[in-house]
Simulated scan of single mutants.
Amino acid sequence: MRDILEEVAGWHAEGTRFALATVVRTWKSSPRQPGASMAVAETGEAVGSVSGGCVEGAVYELAQEVLQTGVPAKQAYGIQDDDAFAVGLTCGGILEIFVEPVDVPRYPELPDVLAAVRGQHGLAVATVVEGPGDVGHRIVVGADTLSGSLGSADLDHSVAGIARGMLEHGTTGVVHVGENGEQRMDQLTVFVESFAPAPQMIVFGAIDFAGAVVRAGKFLGYRVTLCDARPVFATAKRFPDADEVVVDWPHRYLAGRDVDERTVLCVLTHDPKFDVPLLELALRSKAGYIGAMGSRRTHEDRLTRLREIGMDEQSLSRLSSPIGLDIGARTPEETAVSIVAEIIALASGGSGRRLSETGTAIHR
């Protein structure tokens, strides 16, 4: 729901009822992942997408039914269904979608969810989507907060613990528990949507290519920081799309940052006095992606310098250098596409090859 949160929170504040359709499970080559949402207001307006266009028409009709009845509904759309071609889901995947009516009494915590997302504070929303009794009931779970109820204190406590674990890892999906929260039981299906803080992208080097990478990172949903030691170049005016512009020596700045497995580090300085101490820290960190700009000659020189200060081959293998995929990029914008394409490919296990030359699933 993150993509449409601002719109639905506006409806909520105005007192406009709406139906919220959310992808809760997928199989095979499904076009959207769990958490993708579409909302339909009682006025007929729709925002968001659950399938990239395949089943939106059918979901829109189901949402209108839910608004009329006030009863949540769960529907699967897939190629094996009799009406699969009628709704246009011909990609071979299967989507399970939960549609619930939303208004102020049913979801009083929605403004808190919006505030948490805006403030980069993690929250998870756990909703019963299948089982006896309280389908549609939810709890909103923070690191040390809990509001709402799934039906009982024991169930709330059990699911809150699961949700906090999923939030810590930034995962969204369904869990199965007993009616009182018992583990290894499956009377209830609960959908947990994690609103984890946006992952970090830190771009080092205030050059023209950095501006394009910053824009691309923002487009992909990262919280982007630009860092350079030169105050004349590292300015908010030159990098208006960055969430933060920092004037500091790159390695000193990185040493003071919390870096996790979702963090992306793009080293665009290609100057040994900046690169080597910075990359030494980066390669010892938990960062999920570490890329460095430069020619192949620069790369070999960089590796030599890193080996001289004790970096082993396993650590060096984490370095994406020269940075990006081979797409023939030349301009800053093309280079940014090359870089973020590599980031996406490594995170998702993609090959980076043309889809027309592969036989693997398009959506993993």
Rank of each mutant, 00 (worst) to 15 (best):
A198P: 02
M311V: 07
G119Y: 00
K218N: 15
V174P: 02
D81S: 04
E130S: 14
V159Y: 02
E261W: 10
D144T: 07
T69S: 14
P199D: 07
T189C: 07
P108A: 12
L5F: 08
A212K: 04
E333L: 08
C54P: 04
T335G: 11
L306H: 01
L155H: 04
A229V: 09
E244Y: 08
R284K: 15
V159G: 01
T335I: 14
H251Y: 13
V203C: 13
F191K: 00
D228G: 08
A210F: 06
G131W: 00
E357G: 15
P272Y: 11
A206E: 04
V8F: 12
I162D: 10
E261R: 11
V59P: 01
E61Y: 14
V40F: 01
I309V: 13
P72V: 00
I339H: 09
A36T: 09
H137M: 12
G15V: 10
A36D: 08
V50P: 04
R354G: 15
S315R: 14
S51I: 01
L110H: 03
V40R: 03
R184Q: 15
L67Y: 05
L188P: 01
G173T: 05
L279V: 04
I94D: 11
I139W: 02
G349D: 03
P240Q: 09
S351F: 13
P31F: 06
V174M: 03
F85E: 12
R252F: 09
E280S: 11
R257P: 05
D156C: 06
V141A: 06
V135S: 01
L155R: 00
G181D: 07
L220A: 14
D82K: 12
T90R: 12
I290A: 08
V59H: 00
F85H: 07
E61I: 11
D144L: 00
I339R: 05
S317N: 13
W11V: 05
F219M: 12
F209S: 10
L325K: 02
G119M: 02
L281A: 15
G350Q: 06
L346Y: 07
S51C: 05
Q75Y: 13
M311N: 06
E179F: 10
V71Q: 12
A229W: 14
E280F: 09
C266M: 08
Q80S: 15
G70T: 08
